[in-house]
Amino acid sequence: MAARMLSVLQSCPSHERHGWLARCMHSVEQWAAAQGFSYRWIDDELFDLLPADLQPGQRISPVIASDIARLIWMQQRLHHGDKAVLWLDADVLVIQPEQLMLPSAHAAVGREVWVQAEPAGGWRVYRKVHNAALLARDQGAGRNSFIDFYLDTAQRLVRANGHGMPAQFVGPKLLTALHNVVQLPVMEDVGMLSPAVVADLLHGGGGALKRMLGKSTRSMHAANLCRSSTHAGDLDDEQMLRLVDQLLAHPESVALA
Rank of each mutant, 00 (worst) to 15 (best):
A2W: 09
L6R: 09
L6V: 14
L9G: 02
G19P: 02
W20T: 04
A32D: 03
G36M: 10
F37Q: 05
Y39I: 10
W41I: 05
I42A: 06
D44F: 01
E45V: 03
F47K: 00
F47N: 02
L50Y: 03
D53Q: 03
Q55V: 08
Q58L: 12
P62A: 05
D67G: 06
L71Q: 11
L78H: 02
D82E: 14
K83D: 15
K83Y: 10
W87C: 07
L88T: 08
L93G: 04
Q96F: 00
L100P: 00
M101K: 11
M101N: 13
A108M: 07
G110C: 06
V115R: 01
P119Y: 09
A120F: 11
G121A: 08
G122S: 04
A136P: 00
F146D: 10
A154T: 11
Q155G: 05
R156I: 09
G162D: 03
F169T: 05
F169C: 12
V170M: 11
V170F: 07
K173I: 14
L174G: 02
T176M: 07
N180S: 15
P195I: 02
V197R: 01
V198M: 09
D200G: 01
L201V: 07
H203R: 11
G204L: 07
G205P: 07
G207N: 05
G207H: 04
L209R: 02
L209Y: 00
K210V: 08
R211K: 11
K215Q: 15
S216T: 08
M220P: 02
C226N: 13
M240E: 03
L243D: 05
V244T: 10
V244W: 07
V244N: 09
V244Q: 10
V254G: 04
L256E: 11
